[in-house]
Design a protein around this nucleic acid. Structure first.
Length: 466
DNA sequence: TCTGGGGTCCTATTCCTA
DNA sequence: TCTGTAGGAATAGGACCC
């Protein structure tokens, strides 16, 4: 899709037509998620700090973006694509690979299918898109890029819309491109290739594969050697199952207090747990990610023997993991993610013995309950209220506590989900989320691309709290 | 200029166990 | 019973994508 988020905004508000529209985080720590071609003419690009974008493009119309709206349009796009073939592999919200090998007998040549997709996307979604055609995902991807319009200082130059690269033309197409055009070549790899005197795909293709393997490792080196020769055997994989999911949030101001950081993890755990349950999933591994004020990054993770899907259990593990983090340098970003996903049914089979907690806790020293609040089955929803949950200690102790909480909260959580289903996602929430900024327990936060500058109205969350 | 959020994949290291 | 070793899982970090 062309400038997807910005185009959706223009679609919904025709007054924006022809204006430099920039979608992203509106605060000083925000970045550009998408921008119209009019904004690109000023030099604005995706992932650019919003402060920089405003400097480059003073007349920019800066919008915070509406992720749920983009998801909705993305769903409709996929419906259109699925009418062409079931072999659709989505890449983000606005891109997809289609394997039309089998569809050609029914729908005609790839060019005809591409033209039909463009017509239908414009007619049914009101948005423009480009299509690249090639015998591999690598070539199709680069062809679609070549089909896009180009933003120039003088204005937007329309692209061809559809670019088809025949197998015999692949190397002619690829060789003049800079190495950065290749899938998997980002800033780090580019710098290392440049250090070796390699700037273009043609130059990369001249390097013996064993040299690339030596410099870039087995997998990455072989991948580079293949791509430079136009070799990409990766198939189109529809319905790829998620392997991890999470939430992260950059704070308006760095946090220097561990208890405050642990409290902030509460709503994130709630959001992640909600995401798990809505997809009928549970998770065995919990990871917290901490980015410090100097932009250095650490992750801490722990795997449990029992899979989790409740917020208090996830929060207990997060709290224990954060206990080992030195926050004196100031924390800019906190993330909570889970992996080792399995279906909810599978999790039930693991929870034979909840009385002993997580077996990992047997390796922990000290009382497994050290610092833990007395958690009987709760009669009031008050997880982590009044600062961070008081569970502290090793990750194993956190795991032990999490296992108990998972058992205790399963029924309560099911009841909360039921209430949300009947009365809306805002109808009820955990007390720990009162006044919490950014993350919305039921989904993605409004500050999706970075914190806004205006403070959150804490009264917003009161009505939905039990 | 000063860097978001949600993901995937790969590699190196450490730890545990057979 | 002790020790060395190999393999796998867990953990941490890095790079990349949209």
């Amino acid at each position: 899709m062309d400038a997807f988020f910005a185009s959706v905004e223009v679609l919904d508000d025709p007054n924006l037509q022809g204006l430099p529209v920039v979608v992203g985080g509106t605060g000083t720590r925000g970045v550009v998620a998408s921008c119209s071609y009019e904004a690109r003419a000023f030099g604005v690009r995706s992932a650019m700090p919003m402060v920089r974008a405003r400097q480059l493009c003073p007349p920019a119309v800066v919008l915070a973006g509406r992720y749920s709206r983009y998801e909705e349009v993305s769903r409709r796009l996929r419906e259109v694509l699925h009418e062409v073939t079931p072999l659709v592999e989505p890449i983000g919200l606005d891109e997809a690979f289609l394997d039309v090998t089998g569809a050609q007998r029914l729908l005609g040549e790839a060019d005809e299918i591409a033209a039909d997709i463009r017509r239908r996307v414009l007619a049914e979604l009101g948005l423009g898109c480009t299509v690249g055609i090639g015998r591999s995902k690598l070539v199709a991807k680069l062809a679609s890029r070549a089909a896009k319009p180009r933003a120039e200082r003088s204005g937007t130059r329309p692209g061809p819309g559809i670019v088809r690269v025949e197998p015999e033309d692949e190397l002619t197409f690829l060789y003049p491109m800079p190495v950065t055009a290749l899938w998997g070549v980002g800033p780090a790899t580019t710098a290392r290739l440049h250090a070796l005197g390699i700037e273009t795909v043609a130059e990369l293709a001249e390097v013996p594969p064993d040299v690339l393997l030596r410099h870039f490792g087995r997998a990455h080196g072989a991948h580079l050697a293949d791509l430079a020769r136009g070799v990409d055997p990766s198939p189109v994989v529809p319905d790829r199952a998620a392997k991890s999911l999470g939430h992260e949030e950059t704070f308006r101001h760095d946090i220097y207090d561990l208890a405050e950081l642990q409290r902030r993890a509460g709503p994130m755990a709630e959001a992640v747990a909600g995401h798990l349950r809505s997809n009928c999933l549970t998770a065995r591994t919990v990871t917290v990610k901490v980015r410090f004020g100097d932009f250095s990054l650490i992750t801490r993770s722990h795997s449990l023997t029992m899979a989790l899907d409740t917020a208090p259990a996830l929060h207990a593990v997060c709290t224990a993991l954060l206990d080992a983090v030195d926050v004196t340098a100031g924390v800019r970003l906190l993330g909570v993610s889970v992996s080792g996903l399995q279906s909810s049914g599978a999790a039930q089979q693991l929870s034979f013995d909840l009385s002993n907690g997580d077996p990992a806790s047997t390796a922990a020293t000290g009382s497994p309950d050290r610092g833990a609040a007395p958690h009987s089955v709760p009669t009031a929803v008050a997880v982590g209220s009044g600062g961070a949950d008081s569970a502290s200690g090793t990750a194993s102790q956190g795991a032990s506590r999490a296992t108990r909480l998972q058992a205790q909260w399963q029924e309560v959580t099911a009841a909360l989900d039921d209430i949300r289903e009947r009365f809306g996602s805002d109808a009820v929430g955990l007390a720990a989320s009162i006044g919490a900024e950014g993350v919305h327990p039921a989904g993605r936060g409004r500050d999706y691309w970075g914190p806004s500058d205006e403070p959150t109205d804490e009264n917003e969350s009161v009505d939905r709290t039990v």
